[in-house]
Design a protein around this nucleic acid. Structure first.
Lengths: 341, 341
DNA sequence: TTGTATGCGTTATCAC
DNA sequence: GTGATAACGCATACAA
């Protein structure tokens, strides 16, 4: 991969405008104390030559890149897309760009991606969740790189966070079903390894069911990868049990969509014969038929707050190490009274 | 935004290992002609010091960054997420990273984002579609930057492309409905300004309906932003007409989901009372009830091919300026015979 | 307000 | 094979 282009340099602009390179640089950086006349001449020269400054040289010389990095598990799930969009928008207000890296829920890939971001010289880093390879913390600390994790609620001074409690809403979801008379609950969970959010949600489901005296047997907890088709498969598995559940708690909305759609195909009526819940509150959720009971994850708000807080940290401001947001239940029609046997 | 960290430099590694900086650089770049002994000592020193090379300095000195940039309208639509995922995966095989920039279908933002990518020194650029500000082409040409557009089928030697025909499948979709006896068709389109794909699809719908002698009156073409809720609103608008359509052609799957879900809510049966089509074939499509008739956009394949072809271009290879992929219809149960009045 | 000179952390071109 | 050293393109003290 090579490049032969003879690009126009800052030096060329200076020559064209008949000024020094320093002056061009000042105009570029909107530095104070530049005369209107000089600025105009430089800008005209830039325009004429179609000059584009070299970000790498710039970063090298100024020791700042004007961008932060975000490490997200996947862009397949629109909930992260929404957060990223909001984060990026907000960063713009601070004249800061966003570099996105994905790691498909593989923590080794995450570490690798972080290394890449650090090499790029990002001014700060955003992480999802609390599960990471130890080297992640080491690297971040060694470089004294401002960072923020989100999407969880761990109260860890060494690990600043803007997130929400994943366990509590899960518990409340299960309690809601128990209150509706359900006793045979089941869970469709995303893989919990390296995913503290999925673990917390599962734990919430467990706590509520155990407290109610009807704990979840292993066969009623199925773990599947992310995806509608996977949710549908999980439905088959669960409904094939000797004692199929009357309610299925899903680790996220996409899995719940899969369960509901499979139910419809099999002629299992939701919620009359089967209650289903999700987690995320994607825009589809309220449009499903019936509308999906789920948890409203504040993705947009997280993006906004992370942007502000991380920029503040980069600027050396002291910030609280934990901002907890609300993740309220969205009770809709996919949950109803337990069927009478 | 400043950074005070005293990082370990290549020079420190050299000192620690007792070799020259050049040797360290060689080890880093897996250059040939380095003795095993030297390599081991250097690698040990790197490990000990936790050294991470500076990507910016590296890019500056080597005049290559090892990354390409992708300009996508939005990450909200999972179809682009899928393409990006596939692109990124494939680029890895070529030791190339991916920088993602979004522009929310605003061509001025796209140009701005391109400038940013160029500043970053990307080795190549991926664009979606054929609609761009003229300055995009100018900038790309001036920098002699390898690039590739995708998702369309314009046969333009100056604008290399890996995509598919948007109009033809749209036409075939409409013809399918006409064949089923529908005469009052309607279209829910994404905004066509700055979006050649949306225009082409609309044009395809138009051609087929006009050829069949039942052209689309203006009131039966509604344009809405992307989103489920927007699709649902479009349904309301169309079904509120004096002569409501018996079939609705949607510009993408998400709009179709909105239409179908709104129909279900209103008790309008799909396809008995209303046929609906999409465009994209998102994973949800086949799981809707009824499964959605749509067009299978080869997003994964585009990502893969774009990676290979762009890398080839960067390496100076001559490539065909157009690779046309197939976008077959996925005929499912959301379309059926026109109801008898 | 503007210009000069030095340094940012690597890679690459020479020598040895 | 390995080691000096000059680029790479820009920002920024410092000087004027």
């Amino acid at each position: 991969m090579n490049k032969e282009t003879q690009r126009t340099l800052l030096e060329d602009v200076a020559r064209e405008a008949g000024v020094s390179t320093a002056s061009v640089s000042r105009v570029l950086n909107r530095a104070p104390h530049v005369s209107e006349r000089l600025r105009e001449r430089v800008e005209a020269a830039i325009e004429r030559l179609g000059y584009v400054p070299d970000g790498n040289a710039r970063a090298l010389a100024s020791r700042r890149i004007g961008a932060i990095g975000a490490l997200v598990p996947t862009l397949d799930n629109p909930i992260f897309g929404a957060m990223i969009d909001s984060l990026e928008q907000r960063l713009k207000h601070h004249d800061c760009r966003l570099l996105i890296a994905t790691y498909r829920y593989d923590l080794d890939d995450e570490l690798q991606a972080l290394r890449t971001l650090v090499q790029q010289g990002v001014d700060g880093v955003v992480l999802i969740g609390h599960d990471h390879r130890p080297a992640v913390g080491t690297l971040l600390a060694r470089r004294r790189l401002p960072f923020l994790s989100c999407w969880h609620a761990e109260d860890d001074p060494a690990w600043p966070c803007i997130g929400f409690d994943n366990a509590a809403p899960a518990r409340r979801l299960a309690e809601h079903l128990l209150r509706l008379g359900h006793r045979r609950l089941a869970v469709v969970s995303a893989p919990t390894e390296g995913n503290d959010r999925a673990r917390a949600r599962l734990e919430g489901f467990r706590q509520a069911t155990e407290a109610a005296g009807c704990p979840l047997p292993p066969e009623r907890i199925v773990t599947v990868e992310y995806g509608i088709a996977e949710g549908a498969r999980a439905f088959e598995t669960l409904m094939g049990l000797e004692a199929p559940p009357t309610a299925i708690l899903c680790g996220n909305d996409t899995l719940a969509f899969g369960v509901m759609l499979a139910a419809q195909r099999k002629g299992v009526c939701v919620p009359d014969q089967l209650s289903v819940t999700g987690f995320d509150d994607l825009s589809q959720a309220r449009f499903m038929s019936p509308p999906l009971t789920t948890v409203a994850v504040p993705a947009i708000e997280i993006g906004r707050r992370v942007a502000d807080a991380l920029i503040a940290r980069i600027d050396g401001k002291i910030m609280p190490h934990l901002q907890l947001l609300d993740a309220p239940l969205a009770l809709r029609e996919s949950t109803g009274p337990a069927p009478i046997d």
